[in-house]
Amino acid sequence: MTTDDRIQRAVELYERAVFGGDTDAPAEALFWTGCFHQVVGDDTGTAVPLFERSLALAERAGDRLTMSYALRHLGFVAHMAGRLPVARERFEESNRLRREVGFPAGVAANLIGLAYIAAAEGDREGALALLDEAADLADGAAAHGIRRSIDEARTEI
Score class of each variant (00 low, 15 high):
77 V>F: 02
7 I>W: 11
97 L>E: 13
19 F>C: 11
82 G>Q: 12
99 R>P: 03
10 A>C: 08
105 A>T: 06
72 R>H: 11
132 D>W: 01
21 G>Y: 09
120 A>P: 02
80 M>A: 11
105 A>Q: 04
4 D>T: 06
100 E>Y: 03
106 G>N: 02
14 Y>P: 00
63 D>F: 04
12 E>M: 11
142 A>D: 15
131 L>T: 00
18 V>S: 06
115 A>V: 06
49 P>Q: 13
65 L>R: 15
50 L>A: 01
124 R>Y: 03
98 R>G: 04
109 A>N: 09
147 R>H: 01
64 R>I: 05
13 L>M: 14
104 P>M: 14
10 A>D: 12
154 R>C: 03
131 L>V: 03
88 R>Y: 01
82 G>A: 13
143 A>R: 03
152 E>N: 05
104 P>Y: 14
77 V>C: 08
144 H>E: 10
109 A>Q: 08
19 F>Q: 09
9 R>A: 15
91 F>S: 00
50 L>K: 14
140 G>R: 07
106 G>V: 00
32 W>H: 05
137 L>N: 10
131 L>Q: 00
61 A>F: 08
11 V>R: 06
15 E>S: 12
121 E>M: 07
51 F>Y: 15
156 E>C: 03
51 F>L: 06
140 G>N: 06
48 V>G: 08
59 E>L: 09
57 L>H: 07
15 E>W: 06
109 A>H: 10
70 A>Y: 05
48 V>M: 07
157 I>Q: 01
63 D>M: 04
75 G>C: 09
97 L>V: 07
130 L>Q: 00
21 G>T: 07
52 E>C: 13
10 A>I: 05
43 D>I: 14
34 G>K: 06
155 T>H: 00
155 T>P: 01
99 R>M: 13
62 G>P: 01
87 A>L: 07
95 N>Q: 12
119 A>G: 06
46 T>R: 14
69 Y>N: 09
56 A>T: 15
155 T>G: 01
147 R>A: 04
35 C>V: 09
141 A>F: 12
35 C>Y: 15
157 I>C: 01
89 E>I: 09
122 G>Q: 13
25 A>D: 10
